[in-house]
């Protein structure tokens, strides 16, 4: 990361005295405030040089403040050079209770043989609407793993378009969304297999409480030349109330004949037999239900490759499920 078109902000946001303690040793932080890199107000553009394999994790903390406009559009880009390895944590927060609308375009491109790991944490307040469009381009022998954690927010929409452009490109997309009250979350995935021997997998899981709404729409598009494609997709939802609604829509468009593709979707409730078993050992109903929800979420959290970050996210998820949220214990500032 030697490009100088961005700066590292101090790890404390001076205006709001916000200090994110989510990341671990070896993480550098960069604030993007109301769409611009702190200190420059310029759009974010990060480039990992060819062959760059540092262990460092870059955390980009995007925040909305009351000094920004109510409605905001911004763009950012991340590009990973040939043979590079990169790790990112992308967080989005709101620092005020204003009814924000944020529209974001995020370009991610992986040059041949690069390997990238991205964890996204979306934690905003109930009046915030956030629409993110991801344009992801993965070239030959490059691999991307992404974990979307949508922990809180009024109306969150992730539109994720992935192009697998080159043999042996691979993309592992995972998402966990937890919604309650009147929150809405939408994940729209379009996975385009353009070349042979590429791999993709999508695992999206949601826990819906109260009158929340979630939708998942996942397209797997296999182009005629993309033989030996492997493409998998799963969407599972846990509905805690009768009022919660989920829309799950898988779409397969396959124009090659030698491929392995599968998709599956389930919408279920907490299993009564499991619940009785847990309670019969002395675990109170609420705790038992929490264990069941954590167990449901774990498959996604387990995709976070940094053990330390995984632990943090497991504990944030637990707090969220306990309803203690809207405030993450690791921050001195209310996140949403």
């Amino acid at each position: 990361m030697t490009e100088n078109n961005y700066i590292y902000a101090p790890s404390e946001h001076p205006a709001d005295k916000f200090r994110c303690k989510v990341p671990m040793k070896g993480t550098r932080q960069l604030f993007v405030i109301d769409g611009g890199v702190q200190g420059t107000a310029a759009p974010l553009s990060i480039k990992f040089d060819e062959g760059n394999c540092s262990d460092e994790i870059l955390q980009v903390i995007g925040v909305r403040t009351s000094s920004g406009p109510k409605e905001l559009s911004s763009e950012s880009s991340f590009s990973f050079g040939q043979n590079s390895q990169g790790r990112l944590i992308l967080c989005s927060h709101t620092f005020a209770e204003d009814p924000f609308i944020t529209k974001e375009k995020i370009k991610i491109s992986l040059a041949p043989n690069s390997s990238v790991d991205i964890v996204l944490m979306q934690n905003e307040h109930n009046d915030a609407e956030h629409i993110s469009e991801f344009e992801i381009d993965i070239q030959r022998d490059a691999s991307l793993r992404m974990v979307f954690l949508t922990l809180h927010g009024g109306k969150i929409s992730n539109n994720i378009k992935v192009n697998l452009n080159g043999e042996n490109a691979s993309c592992d997309l995972n998402g966990l969304y937890i919604v309650d009250g009147k929150q809405q979350v939408r994940n729209l995935v379009s996975m385009n297999h353009k070349d042979p021997h590429c791999y993709s997998s999508q695992l999206f899981k949601g826990i819906l409480d109260d009158a929340s709404v979630a939708s998942f729409s996942g397209l797997i598009h296999v182009w005629p030349d993309a033989q030996k494609t492997q493409a998998y997709q799963e969407n599972h939802n846990l509905l805690l109330t009768k009022e919660a609604k989920v829309y799950s829509e898988p779409q397969l468009e396959i124009y090659a004949d030698d491929v392995k593709c599968s998709h599956g979707a389930t919408n279920g409730r907490l299993d009564e037999n499991e619940l009785f078993y847990l309670r019969s050992r002395g675990i109170p109903k609420k705790e038992a239900q929490l264990l069941q929800q954590q167990a449901f979420a774990y498959a996604v959290l387990d995709k976070i490759s940094s053990e330390e970050l995984k632990e943090r996210m497991v504990s944030l998820t637990e707090q969220r499920l306990r309803g203690e949220f809207s405030k993450c214990k690791n921050c001195c500032k209310n996140c949403c």
Binding site: F276, L278, L291, Q292, Q294, A295, Y298
Partner: peptide, 14 residues
């Protein structure tokens, strides 16, 4: 009952 995702140790500790 099988409970995927809840480990035996976590179950019994709770």
């Amino acid at each position: 009952i099988e409970i995927p995702g809840v480990t035996n140790v976590n179950f019994m500790r709770t």
